[in-house]
Amino acid sequence: MTGAALADPAALRDEVWRVAGAVTDPEIPVLSIADLGVLRDVRVADGRVEVLITPTYSGCPAMTMIALEIELALDKAGLGPVVVKTVLAPAWTTDFMSEDGRRKLKAYGIAPPAKTAGRRALFGVEVVDCPQCGSSDTAEIAPFGSTSCKSLWQCKACREPFDYFKCH
């Protein structure tokens, strides 16, 4: 990337998006923040670059780490310094996750979020397919898992326990 190309705001924005978007979630390293939908926007004005990110959950402890990783990645690519801002609206939902992200998640052994879940029902039952053998004969072991965004399940067919990325 040459200095002349970077002087073009549109090209600069694309390049920042590409580099920042490749930063991975520290807790689910197979997913980039672009896959997750955590990267919301890149704004370029008067040569100043702003990267907007949104948390998956209010208390997501990975946000500080992700912001730092973005600054580092852009600095390394010669695109820094940038300002990383957290935005809350529109509120993140699992629908922000890309199809590619869902595939990567499953390949990693985490069941991707269901598209339609009975979250509103007080005692709704979700059907989650086992990411290992594909069986839908699964049961929730614990509604809260190793991170805010996951719950713990077990497959009754292949007996493997697995994480489920909660529909949110």
Binding site: L88, A91, R119, H168
Partner: peptide, 8 residues
């Protein structure tokens, strides 16, 4: 926005 996040 805060409410939309928290209600989930």
């Amino acid at each position: 926005a805060i409410a939309a996040k928290a209600e989930k």
